[in-house]
């Protein structure tokens, strides 16, 4: 089942992104944006400091390939479009950036490679070694809890509040998605 930009738009509409971000249109300022403290970020990120938007997208897309089921395709475009709406300078967007930095740091330290270059089994293992599988999400918690909140659950929230993600489970209008007031009346297809 293919995820589309429409799914990303739906997920953003569901969980909130404002500010007029046009999906698929990268902001010229992306790579100049920094962390909350105005820290400089480098588009060709080497693992030091905070990653720029492109590096965040690359890492998140790689994680999505681990936490999304095999049944979905179109992950890259979906995640990138979704993050266009989330990396908006908000505290949440900066939380994503910081959590990705921690996960990347662990990947480079433990596996000598960025997340995107890890084989699938190592990516899965990395997330588990970080504790993101058993941690409860918490935006102000431990590294495991923040990676769970800003990375793993961020991606799962995007998927399963979208029509295509919901449909995988049998609900084309999942909670959080404004899919109209008709689907509840329809029987199973």
């Amino acid at each position: 089942m293919e995820l589309t930009r429409r799914d990303a738009a739906a997920a953003l509409a569901a969980i909130g992104a404002t500010g007029g971000v046009a999906l698929g249109v990268r902001r010229a300022a992306d790579e100049r944006s920094g962390g909350p403290g105005g820290e400089e970020v480098d588009p060709a990120w080497d693992g030091e400091g905070l990653p720029g938007d492109e590096a965040v997208r690359t890492a998140m897309t790689a994680v999505a390939r681990t936490v999304y089921p095999d049944a979905v395709s179109g992950i890259d475009a979906f995640v990138e479009a979704f993050l266009d709406g989330r990396l908006d300078g908000s505290p949440h967007g900066e939380g994503i950036r910081a959590a990705v930095a921690e996960a990347e740091s662990a990947a480079r330290s433990w596996y000598d490679a960025p997340i995107a270059d890890l084989p699938p089994a190592d990516r899965d293992e990395l997330l588990r070694e970080l504790g993101a599988d058993v941690a409860g999400e918490n935006p102000g918690g431990t590294t495991a809890e923040r990676v769970r909140y800003y990375v793993v659950n961020e991606l799962l929230l995007a998927l399963y509040s979208s029509p295509t993600g919901g449909e995988l489970v049998g609900i084309e209008n999942p909670q959080g998605h404004p899919g109209g007031a008709e689907s509840y009346r329809r029987g199973p297809r």
Binding site: T66, V67, Y68, L127, D133, V134, G136, E137, V152, N153, L156, L157, L159, Y160, S161, G166, V169, I171, P174, Q175, G176
Partner: peptide
């Protein structure tokens, strides 16, 4: 489903 997806130790 979306609330279920955010808990548990699986993905």
């Amino acid at each position: 489903p979306v609330e279920m997806a955010l808990t548990g130790d699986d993905w």
